[in-house]
Design a protein around this nucleic acid. Structure first.
Lengths: 188, 188
DNA sequence: TACGTTGGCCAACAGGTGTTGACCAACAAT
DNA sequence: ATTGTTGGTCAACACCTGTTGGCCAACGTA
């Protein structure tokens, strides 16, 4: 392991923390560099630009495993549990959401990471009418994104106070209904 | 009506638009002033500071009416419909959410505006155990906030494509369940 | 011992930011 | 006719931003 790899990961760790805490604009390269105990110019040399640093700090591969052996009636619980595993104490995801809300470029990243990479594949697998898969996946994603927003970004006390099992118990049926229940119809 | 009131409201309109489109940091006073066709210094004279302008541009009174005559089994639908009425085409709310996500000060504003001013009163009214009112209201708020995020801020195509009645048909039962259904228990 | 490479610091640049204060035209009232 | 107020512009200040390029110490290798 080269000596540079240590500082490289130190920069990435500091960047994730600062981006998650302050958002893209307020998280300055100078502050990140100070956290990593290096000169700001090093950040540029390692990652090219601030955008490059952000891209490197918020890139994941978080497809959920064992998709084939998924019982359709358990999709909600599996999805919510996977969602909680991902977000619990993950600064990079908080940073991604925070920045995605701020700019238009980030919105695309969030959609790709949260929606197309996670919820949509499950929806395609379990939902009855393939034509509705996108809409149903979007509903499920909105529910989980809302919980992520309240619990990990805004930190509303009542949502932070919820135990992990309680979140699963409340959200899993909702997600399950969005994915597999018959269309409610409404006033259409 | 004084001559100044016209420019005052022009500034506020431009500010809401810019804050909603670009977020707090990227929305510069100079850009807002140019949109309102005035000098940037006028913004300062009228609102004191950028924070003052933002506070003025995102202050609402959006308590929902007729709370006393609310049938408990209709709380979900009423709440979701009220929520959609509020958000549809409301730049100020989008701006508030966008900024609230970016900074810690905004999070408090969002909580007060969305949670304590809207959902919590309804929850206190209709939910069975008063001790659970806060948690249940938080769950409902998270669901609606997630839809607001996906539909009005991130503009996920599948959520934008949903008709208003469809959103109500899908979300109302969820909110209703969060507010009044018996505690699911789970693995507690 | 010489030397190129690696990892790092320092100082500066160019541009954009919120904010301030001086100045000014129009108009109403004395 | 003079005065005071209102609504507005202009130019600047002080600061902070991302970014750049030059310099430097250590070190492995020939």
């Amino acid at each position: 392991m080269r000596r540079s790899d240590a500082t490289r990961t130190a920069i990435l760790a500091a960047a994730r923390e600062r981006f998650a805490a302050d958002g893209y604009d307020r998280a300055t390269i100078r502050a990140i560099a100070k956290d990593a105990r290096i000169d700001p110019s090093m950040v540029m040399r390692y990652f090219g630009s601030k955008e490059g640093l952000f891209a490197a700090a918020t890139s994941f591969d978080l497809r959920l495993p064992e998709l084939g052996s998924l019982a359709p009636e358990e999709a909600g619980r599996v999805l919510v549990e996977h969602f909680l595993d991902l977000w619990e104490g993950n600064d990079a995801l908080v940073a991604l959401l925070r920045v995605g809300v701020a700019g238009a470029a980030g919105a695309e990243r969030i959609r790709h990471t949260m929606f197309e990479q996670q919820v949509l594949p499950v929806a395609r697998e379990v939902c009855p009418d393939p034509e509705q898969a996108a809409a149903r996946a979007a509903l499920a994603a909105a529910q989980m994104l809302g919980m992520a927003l309240a619990r990990y970004v805004l930190r509303f006390p009542p949502t932070v106070a919820l135990a992990r099992e309680e979140v699963v118990a409340w959200l899993a049926p909702t997600v399950q209904r969005y994915l597999t229940a018959p269309h409610p119809g409404g006033a259409l």
